[in-house]
């Protein structure tokens, strides 16, 4: 469903991605690991369509179409979802309003009718229960004044509501205590379908105990320097990245 070939990208004229190749098929879970500053978030943002990142080469095909030509909102409407490493605060826009607006936009793009407020309330009940979030969070402004953990949970709530086909989770586990981690992982797992795929960016093996990857990739210096099965994550946990980044430099 996703095919990345030779992808290079710059930000502020600085080359960050230096040739990424990655193929993700429906039903798969891919973990992307790697040292700080190696370009993991950049890859995630490029896939989501952030305008600050300039793609300078390569191709990205999503469901047979050129993903790079689509505006960010079109990507989202077609099922691409990025859980941000640093979720954005939007004072003045309530979480409920935001979620409903997003949900309706995605539905409209898929040729469905807008949801009525009552059915939406039911949907919210179901999804909030999934991430064990309190209803009071709905009336608050999007992420404004949320704790780090609450923000991450809110990302998963949005994901649960939008039901993306390709979810990219950028360090959703950072800053979560062990209970929150389990809740978030359960949320992600329960949304898993044979037609969906997930890319999990993480520094920690512990998340991968809950969200078990089919493949693990190591990103260093803007390239994928090693790919393997889930055992690669354990190896990284034990040995760090030095043994891999040495030959990448």
């Amino acid at each position: 469903m996703l095919e990345i070939r030779g992808l290079t990208a710059t930000v502020s004229d600085k080359e960050i991605l230096r040739g990424i190749d990655l193929i993700v098929k429906p039903g798969e879970v891919h973990a992307v690991m790697g040292p700080n500053g190696s370009g993991k978030s950049t890859l995630a943002q490029v896939l989501a369509g952030h305008p600050a990142y300039e793609v300078t080469g390569g191709t990205v095909t999503y469901d047979g179409q050129n993903l790079l030509e689509m505006d960010a909102e079109v990507r989202a409407q077609r099922g691409v979802f990025l859980a941000f490493q640093y979720p954005v605060e939007i004072p003045g826009v309530s979480n409920a309003y935001f979620l409903r607006a997003a949900y309706n936009e995605v539905r409209k793009a898929q040729g469905q009718e807008e949801i009525d407020p009552l059915s939406f309330a039911d949907l919210m009940d179901e999804k909030m229960a999934l991430v064990e979030m309190d209803h009071s969070m709905l009336t608050r402004s999007v992420n404004a004044g949320f704790s780090g953990g609450e923000k991450k949970r809110n990302e998963i709530l949005q994901m649960a509501v939008l039901e993306p086909r390709l979810a990219i989770l950028d360090e959703t586990d950072s800053g979560l205590d062990i209970d929150a981690l389990r809740i978030v992982a359960n949320g992600v797992n329960s949304l898993k379908k044979p037609t969906n795929a997930t890319i999990v960016v993480t520094h920690y093996q512990r998340l991968l105990n809950y969200i078990v990857p089919d493949y693990v990739h190591v990103l260093a210096g803007g390239r994928i320097v090693r790919s393997g099965g889930k055992e690669l994550a354990l190896e990284l946990e034990a040995k760090g990245y030095d043994w891999l980044t040495g030959d990448a430099a």
Partner: peptide, 29 residues
């Protein structure tokens, strides 16, 4: 704020609506 605009768009909200919501939100408090 460009980051806020992108965040909204990344949830499927079109560019115009994102601008409108942010503009309104500025005045809300």
């Amino acid at each position: 704020d460009e980051t806020s605009l992108f965040y909204m768009k990344s949830r499927g909200i079109n560019a115009r609506m994102a601008r409108e919501l942010l503009t309104y939100a500025f005045a809300a408090d």
